[in-house]
């Protein structure tokens, strides 16, 4: 290889941290959030058991563990774990994003994608949109701040939100983005944690597609049921 200038040319900054370690933080925090999503979708489906069932489930989330621990204890723990996961995931993403920008300051005049999927290409901006969606979603259905029926019961808040086609459209869009994020995320986490190989590659990718499709379909079931009047 050609050598123009020898030795330690650059950036001691990147050397202190390790890009693979950041990916591990990303993978582990992603898995934590993924497990939460599974619990979340199971809870959502209680909407089909009727208003009483859904509202009492919502109450149970806040009081679970009583009287051993005061109400909100379990919920607070879950919330703290999730906030830590979101912050860690975001930190790793931003840090690797900046590293990638530094690694290629001059872009190609012509560049063709050969292997990348739409999902992998939209991880970064898609992730940002999903984050904004989560903020909106909490303001809408958890705190009721932006909900048209903010002070009503959880069930009525949900119906109020999804009766608005624009709100539903935003949810659908964000959930599809989230589904693609998970599709690449599951594969990428398997690679990052060193659990993939040529033999498993196909299975991992098939699982990633199946899992994210089923999960997102589960989430989409509720807004669509409200929109089409199956739940009111």
């Amino acid at each position: 290889m050609t050598v123009t200038d020898s030795g330690q040319r650059r950036t001691p900054k990147a050397a202190k941290t390790n890009s693979v370690f950041k990916k591990v933080v990303m993978a582990v925090s992603g898995i934590v959030m993924l497990l939460y999503l599974v619990a979340h979708v199971v809870g959502n489906l209680k909407v089909f058991a009727g208003r009483e069932s859904f509202n009492s489930y919502s109450e149970w989330i806040r009081t679970v563990g009583e009287p051993a621990v005061p109400s909100y204890t379990v919920l607070t723990v879950v919330r703290i774990v999730l906030i830590v996961a979101v912050v860690a995931h975001f930190w790793a993403a931003v840090s690797l994003w900046r590293q990638a920008k530094r690694a290629r300051p001059d872009r190609y005049v012509t560049k063709k994608a050969v292997a990348q999927s739409y999902a992998s290409r939209t991880m970064r901006w898609g992730g940002v949109i999903v984050l904004l969606f989560i903020v909106w979603h909490i303001l809408d259905l958890t705190t009721g701040t932006v909900n048209p029926d903010g002070d009503a019961s959880p069930y009525d808040r949900l119906v109020a939100s999804f009766s608005n086609p624009f709100s539903t459209a935003f949810y659908v869009l964000a959930l599809i983005l989230l589904g693609m994020h998970l599709r690449h995320g599951i594969w990428s986490a398997t690679q990052t944690l060193g659990q993939s190989n040529k033999r498993r590659e196909r299975t991992v990718n098939a699982f990633a597609i199946a899992f994210s499709t089923v999960l997102i379909a589960g989430f989409l079931l509720v807004p669509f049921s409200v929109l089409f009047g199956l739940v009111d």
């Binding site: 693979v20 990916k23 040529k198």
Partner: peptide, 25 residues
């Protein structure tokens, strides 16, 4: 990392471009 390369996000463009077909595994 010290050389200023980016981090891997498991996209797979590398393996598709590799003249020797080195795999992602």
């Amino acid at each position: 990392d010290r050389e200023g390369f980016g981090g891997c996000t498991n996209i797979g463009e590398c393996s598709a471009a590799c003249p020797k077909g080195i795999s992602m595994e």
